[in-house]
């Protein structure tokens, strides 16, 4: 309990101090994008890390949120929050509809099915040119909430930081609730959880829907912030990027997901200095991290620190 609040407090302090260390809007821009990715990853981590279910299609939900906002606000002039809610609802409905049959699948079949759904969503977004603008995407109006226009990197930073805190708080509470304990049981062994009377199918579906909603909301905000949305934000590579962030930072660790999102959002920008070698570097870093730290960055580091301190204590 205190541990949980401690983590949240630490995150809040880091988020509050971060802008002081950022020299210009470009870095603030990266922080905002990292924050939006982190929101998706915290949700996705509930599914991948705690419920033990792979999803290679979550960018599809990010895309649904983003395009719901783009189409409803820019084309049909809906209020932004209403459009955001509509996108989240649509994502939830789609996630709910596919959750039961798909989450019955195991391992690689589940990976295949979620991958398939993500790709289908991105192809629909790419192809329905008249509504979505096709592969080149569409321009999105700025976020306008009750007459206040959210504009400029500074303002956006605080909006995203606030939302990230709320998301992390929600996730932490969920993990600590009875539902969360059931979830953790699930990752250990589904059959065992079931024999203990846990309705695993219901919980898995619930987490799937919840993570889809997180992704959708982040997508809506991204569309407003970036001012331009393209189907690339919903495609397979983006889905892979999201899962990679979760696993890279540390599966089953909420703060790991945040760290993973932050590192992997910034890394490609830093790697541009390697010019032609940047993709090689990215692939190499991913491979090496996963080979040598299969549990991810944060849990491995935490394990190291723990081993060090317990060793010191004994001495």
């Amino acid at each position: 309990m205190t541990h949980r609040l401690l983590g949240l407090g630490l995150l809040a302090v880091v988020l509050a101090l971060l802008p002081l260390g950022l020299p210009n809007n470009f870095y603030l821009d990266m922080a905002i994008l990292a924050g939006l990715n982190a929101i998706v990853c915290v949700g996705l981590n509930l599914l991948v890390g705690f419920a033990g279910q792979v999803s290679l299609g979550h960018a599809g939900f990010f895309g649904i949120g983003a395009y719901a906002t783009a189409v409803l606000v820019s084309t049909h002039k809906w209020p932004a929050l209403l459009a955001l809610a509509a996108g989240a609802l649509l994502s939830a409905v789609i996630a709910f509809a596919v959750a039961r049959p798909i989450l019955r699948l195991k391992g690689h079949y589940l990976a295949m099915a979620t991958l398939g759904i993500g790709i289908i969503i991105s192809i629909v977004l790419r192809t329905e040119t008249r509504i979505t603008g096709g592969p080149d995407g569409m321009i999105v109006d700025p976020l306008n909430v009750f007459g206040f226009e959210v504009y400029g990197e500074r303002v956006w930073y605080w909006v995203v930081a606030g939302l990230l805190l709320v998301t992390v708080w929600l996730a932490l509470n969920l993990i600590d609730s009875p539902v969360g304990r059931a979830l953790r049981a699930l990752h250990g062994s589904e059959v065992a959880a079931e024999t203990l009377g846990v309705d695993t199918a219901r919980f898995k579906a619930m987490v799937f829907v919840l993570s889809a909603v997180f992704a959708s909301v982040a997508g809506s905000l991204f569309a407003h912030y970036a001012g331009l949305i393209t189907p690339a934000k919903a495609d397979f590579l983006k889905s892979v990027e999201l899962v990679t962030m979760v696993v890279f930072g540390g599966m089953a660790s909420t703060f790991g997901a945040v760290v993973g999102a932050a590192i992997l959002t910034v890394l490609p920008q830093l790697l541009t200095v390697f010019q032609d070698y940047q993709h090689m570097m990215l692939g190499l870093i991913l491979m090496l991290t996963m080979v040598f730290m299969p549990k991810g960055l944060l849990p491995t580091l935490a394990g190291l620190v723990q081993a060090r301190t317990s060793l010191g204590g004994r001495r």
Binding site: V48, V54, L56, G107, H108, A111, V240, V243, T244, V247, F248, M251, Y277, Q278, H279, M280, M281, L282, G283, L284, I285, L286, M287, M290, V291, P294
Partner: peptide
């Protein structure tokens, strides 16, 4: 002995590396 998703990411890392 890593999990399914870790192995998936290792091979995806390999594919990004090879494209690079």
């Amino acid at each position: 002995n890593a999990s399914v998703v870790t192995l998936i990411i290792i091979t995806i890392g390999a594919s990004i590396f090879l494209r690079g």
